[in-house]
Amino acid sequence: MAEYRLTTPLSDADVTQLKAGDIVYLNGTLYTARDAAHKRLVELIERGEPLPFDLQGAVIYYVGPTPPKPGEVIGSAGPTTSYRMDSYAPILIEHGLKGMIGKGRRNEAVKEACKRYKAVYFGAVGGAGALLAQRIKAAKVIAYEELGPEAIRELVVEDFPVVVVNDVYGNDLYEAGRRQWAKV
């Protein structure tokens, strides 16, 4: 397992070098979106309308942070469970999305889209919301403010720690890890 330091937007070359299990420190911009925001993004694509941010090479972080206290950049900000975005992710990947950050398994359609269009799924440590918030240096809502924690935010991150779960070659860290350590 290798370690990489990458800056967004990600290119094909950035993601094709990554293998499941690699540790990546992300720098640059991440966009946050959960179920409700994904639904709206996909509706915009279907209507051929512009998105609130550029999807080319973008990385979306599945997170709904707690409200910041006065003086804080962001509240606690760990990943949410990713499967809820599975029905929306493939169309975003087809339109240029290069990375997703969440926790938990993805379905076959997402893994297939990662292979076909060269995108990766990263896992961040769930329940480490205070720790991960430290790597977020700026945050602003750029769309759907009325969704509250589910609004789309633009985050500027420094060395945001993630692990490659699904790579462009069809490998899956969760399956491989369990195969290695299961005793049944």
């Binding site: 997170v63 709904g64 942070p65 707690t66 509240g75 606690s76 900000a77 760990g78 949410t80 440590v125 769930g126 329940g127 480490a128 919301g129 205070a130 720790l131 918030a133 430290q134 924690p149």
Partner: peptide
């Protein structure tokens, strides 16, 4: 480490409270 940080900063351990 997260637990230590949350307690020191009085910050939620996890964003899903």
């Amino acid at each position: 480490e997260n637990a230590k940080l949350a307690a020191t900063q009085n910050k939620p351990l996890c964003q899903d409270t």
